[in-house]
Simulated assay, not measured.
Amino acid sequence: MTTGGDHAFGDLISASGITYEMLDSLMALKDLDGVPGLPPLNMIEEMRYEKNTHKLTRADIERQKQEEIAKSRVRQVDSQGRAYGTGKRKCSIARVWIEPGEGKFVINDKQFDVYFPMLDQRAALLRPLSETKTLGLHDVNCTVKGGGISGQIGAIRLGMSRALQNWAPNHFRPPMKEAGFLTRDSRIVERKKPRKAKARKSYQWVKR
């Protein structure tokens, strides 16, 4: 059926058999803009069906985003054959470089066992290397500033994990991601409040 461009809008709708409940779908499909006559009803139904079947759920969209991000991850090595990573924790900032070597670990021009004398501190620092089974296979050189001991350990560990990810993203990222080494710990000390002894601790109340 052909309809002229001078027909009234209501006549076109009644002639095509389209109900008023379908007008929103028609306007969304923009089939009325610049077209002398409305498309047949079966064509509109096919377009609506195709549009509905191509709707993605939130999980599908998130899965596609993660796949695109994973594909975009490539090996990042500088001209000297080193991979770099930055780590932050509390007030500490660490810059870490890794390269193939004999397992040397230098922090601010000092051996890591001299910089961190406690055994539990060294164990926490070496966890990314032990998790990826690269302990003794890479030389690590880093500079760290600010914060205390725990903050510097967290910053160095995050920077080392990111450097390992840049060295071999497909191989090293899954175990470190599962262990939580690639997630920045955003916890900081809560500020002191007025009329409080500390952040939340109150002063002793005396009745008399």
Rank of each mutant, 00 (worst) to 15 (best):
M118K: 08
K65N: 10
E99C: 07
K65Y: 12
K110T: 01
N52E: 15
L56M: 14
T57H: 05
G85F: 02
M43L: 13
T57E: 01
I107A: 07
V114Y: 06
E131V: 15
K110L: 07
K65A: 13
S130C: 02
K110Y: 08
R82F: 04
L135W: 09
G37K: 00
Y84F: 13
L119H: 08
R89D: 08
R82E: 09
E67F: 09
L126K: 00
Q76E: 08
R95F: 09
E50P: 02
Q111V: 04
K65R: 13
G37I: 05
L56C: 08
R127G: 00
E68Y: 10
Y84I: 13
P128D: 02
F112P: 00
M47G: 01
V96A: 02
I69L: 15
W97Y: 13
F105G: 00
R82Q: 09
L137S: 15
K88S: 05
T86H: 11
L125V: 02
Y84H: 15
K51V: 05
R73L: 14
V96W: 06
Q111S: 03
D60G: 10
G37L: 07
I44W: 11
D60L: 11
K110G: 00
L135V: 07
Q66T: 11
R122T: 01
P39Q: 06
E131Y: 10
E99T: 10
C91A: 15
K133I: 03
S130N: 11
T53K: 14
K104W: 08
A124P: 03
A83N: 00
G37N: 07
G81T: 11
Q64M: 13
G85D: 01
A83Q: 05
D78K: 04
E131A: 13
I93V: 11
R95C: 05
Q111M: 05
R73W: 10
R48V: 09
E102N: 10
Q76P: 04
A94M: 03
E62T: 12
F112L: 04
L129D: 06
V114T: 09
A123C: 09
W97D: 00
K110E: 05
R58G: 14
N42W: 12
T134P: 05
W97H: 11
S72H: 05
Q66M: 07
E68D: 14
N42L: 08
V114Q: 10
A83S: 13
E45W: 10
G85R: 02
Q80K: 11
G87Y: 03
L125T: 02
E62Q: 15
Q76W: 06
R73N: 06
Y115G: 00
K71H: 11
D78T: 04
P40A: 12
D139T: 08
E67G: 08
Q76H: 07
D109C: 06
R122M: 04
L137M: 15
I61W: 06
G81N: 08
